[in-house]
Amino acid sequence: MVKQIMSDFAAVADFVVVYVAEAHPTDGWAISGHLSMDIKQHRSLEERLAAAEMLALHDIPCPILVDTMDNAAARAYAAIPDRLYIVLDGVCVYKGEQGPNGYHPEEVRDWLQKFSG
């Protein structure tokens, strides 16, 4: 659904993904049958970059940025395991709840529709 939103609103907004610590590493809190890739807990920036490169293989239609190993972005935005934000002119105008239960891409779609309407 998020990829479709990125496609539908490409003329209205710039999108980025910030890849943070892996939510379900295979050597940590993995969900059986849920993983399509073997991604271990990142022990170096190189490992995190390699995991982000695997994400890029899924045709993510925007730049993928990578958090530092001290998880500065994840801490600043409370983004583990995932979270959606809309930033307009340097101001956060939409802050979704933390995922997975609070991850609601349709709220982003609604906001963008109102903004671009």
Score class of each variant (00 low, 15 high):
Val2Glu: 07
Lys3Gln: 07
Ser7Gly: 07
Ser7Thr: 06
Asp8Asn: 11
Ala10Phe: 09
Ala10Asn: 14
Ala11Val: 05
Val16Asp: 01
Val16Ala: 01
Tyr19Leu: 11
Tyr19Asp: 03
Tyr19Ile: 11
Ala21Thr: 08
Glu22Phe: 07
Ala23Ser: 14
His24Ile: 06
Pro25Asn: 15
Thr26Trp: 06
Gly28Trp: 10
Ile31Thr: 08
Ser32Glu: 15
Gly33Gln: 10
Met37Ile: 15
Asp38Asn: 03
Ile39Ala: 01
His42Thr: 13
Ser44Ile: 09
Leu45Lys: 10
Glu46Val: 07
Glu46Arg: 04
Glu47Pro: 15
Glu47Cys: 12
Arg48Tyr: 13
Ala51Pro: 12
Ala51Tyr: 05
Glu53His: 13
Leu55Ala: 10
Ala56Pro: 05
Leu57Ser: 07
His58Trp: 08
Asp59Ala: 02
Cys62Gln: 12
Pro63Gly: 12
Leu65Glu: 02
Asp67Pro: 00
Thr68Asp: 15
Asn71Ala: 13
Asn71Asp: 08
Asn71Glu: 13
Ala74Trp: 04
Arg75His: 11
Arg75Lys: 09
Ala76Asn: 15
Tyr77Lys: 14
Pro81Ser: 10
Pro81Gln: 03
Tyr85Trp: 15
Ile86Gln: 00
Val87Tyr: 02
Val87Phe: 05
Leu88Arg: 00
Gly90Tyr: 09
Val91Asn: 10
Val93Asp: 01
Gly99His: 10
Pro100Lys: 10
Gly102Tyr: 04
Gly102Gln: 11
Tyr103Ser: 14
His104Pro: 01
Pro105Trp: 00
Pro105Cys: 03
Arg109Lys: 03
Asp110Leu: 12
Trp111Pro: 00
Gln113Phe: 05
Gly117Ala: 07
Gly117Gln: 03
